[in-house]
Amino acid sequence: MNPAGEGLQQLDAISVLNAKTTLVQLLVRAGVHPGDAGELIGLVEAGTLAVAHTRIGGHGGVAPTEKGELYASGWLDGARAVADELGAVAERALRDAVGADASADALDARPPAGRMELERAKVAVLPLYLSFTAVSDLDPEVSEQVLTAVLGTLTTRQRTGYAGQLTRFADDHRVRLERMYAEYGPGSTIAIHGRYSLLHSPTSIAVLERLLTEPTALREEWDAAELPPAWLEGLTTAWGTPA
């Protein structure tokens, strides 16, 4: 019980909608397209549900034993049922957020990258890049073209979790990335223009992750965007693996 003598406080559906509508309107006033604002809010909702699903699933594996085996068995069955339903709700919320249809493969397709997907990718790569090196002066338009090619290798589902995927990649390879940017990035003796140009762009982390994970798909998107093949070769050389 809380100090006011009330039970657990929960928002009703109308109050939740009011908060969402208020946030959308504030974002629109700041210049964000209503559809983009709704997509971002929807992704936050879907992510919150996914986190709750993971937590409930984790706790569901340990049942209380003091009330007997039959009780514990029923407790586990109930926990699994709740977790399964919450997972389904999270999946539906994700589909709604990205505008995917109800088909089973909608989230696993690779449509052209949308404006908000591109913006989210920009927000994801910059702090990771700055954790290794300094801001450089590579043309922002070129960076957008590079990120569009990168996102073209990802499904809609993968794009929604791409920030986390990039962060894990950076954490797993931190020492090697530090060495690479020190030798080839801003502040090094390597010129910004040339085969190592990508090392002067925040997009380089995204390109490298895709180059190591989906090299064929990346090269296809790269060629379709008519980006310089030498940039991929330079990044591969800087990383220290055969091209």
Rank of each mutant, 00 (worst) to 15 (best):
M116A: 02
W239S: 12
Y129W: 00
A46D: 06
G60P: 09
P64C: 11
A81F: 03
A100K: 12
L86N: 11
T148E: 14
L227M: 09
L26A: 14
A243M: 14
L86E: 07
D105M: 15
T236V: 11
R210I: 08
T155D: 07
A225C: 09
E141W: 08
T48F: 12
K122N: 09
T155G: 15
T203R: 04
D12F: 02
L26K: 12
R174A: 15
D12P: 00
P215D: 11
R92V: 13
G187F: 06
S136H: 06
P140G: 09
G57M: 08
A46I: 06
L138G: 03
G164M: 07
T160W: 01
D36Q: 15
G58P: 04
D139P: 04
Q165V: 15
E66K: 07
T155L: 02
I205Q: 03
E221V: 01
S197K: 04
R176C: 00
A170T: 07
G5A: 05
G152D: 00
E66T: 10
P3E: 08
I190M: 08
D84Y: 05
E220W: 01
A104L: 10
D137L: 11
M116S: 12
L166F: 14
W222Y: 05
Q145W: 06
P215T: 11
G194T: 05
L232D: 02
Q145H: 08
L177H: 10
V150P: 00
V32F: 13
R219M: 10
D36T: 14
M116Y: 00
R219Q: 13
P34L: 04
E178D: 09
T213H: 15
G99S: 05
P34M: 09
P202M: 09
L199Q: 13
R168C: 05
V24D: 03
A106G: 09
Y71H: 15
V142G: 14
E144I: 05
R168Q: 12
M1A: 04
A97T: 09
Y162K: 14
I205M: 02
V28Y: 02
R159F: 06
V142E: 10
G240Y: 11
L76W: 00
R195G: 05
P215G: 09
R176G: 00
M116K: 13
G5L: 00
R80T: 00
R157S: 10
V150T: 04
V51L: 06
A149E: 02
R157A: 15
G194D: 05
G185L: 04
V32Y: 11
Y196R: 04
E178I: 05
K20N: 03
V51W: 05
G57V: 00
R176A: 08
A81E: 13
V146P: 04
E178G: 13
L154K: 08
Y184D: 03
A93W: 02
M180K: 08
L151Y: 08
A63K: 07
G87K: 06
E183I: 01
L43E: 15
L177P: 04
T22C: 05
E226G: 11
R174W: 05
I56V: 11
V175G: 03
P127I: 02
S131W: 07
H193F: 01
V28W: 07
A217H: 11
Q165C: 11
V142N: 10
A149D: 02
A100S: 12
D96N: 10
V89Q: 05
T203P: 06
L49F: 02
A113P: 02
V175S: 13
I56C: 11
A13P: 01
V146A: 00
G78T: 06
A79V: 07
L151A: 06
M180A: 13
A134R: 14
T216H: 07
P111Y: 07
D139Y: 08
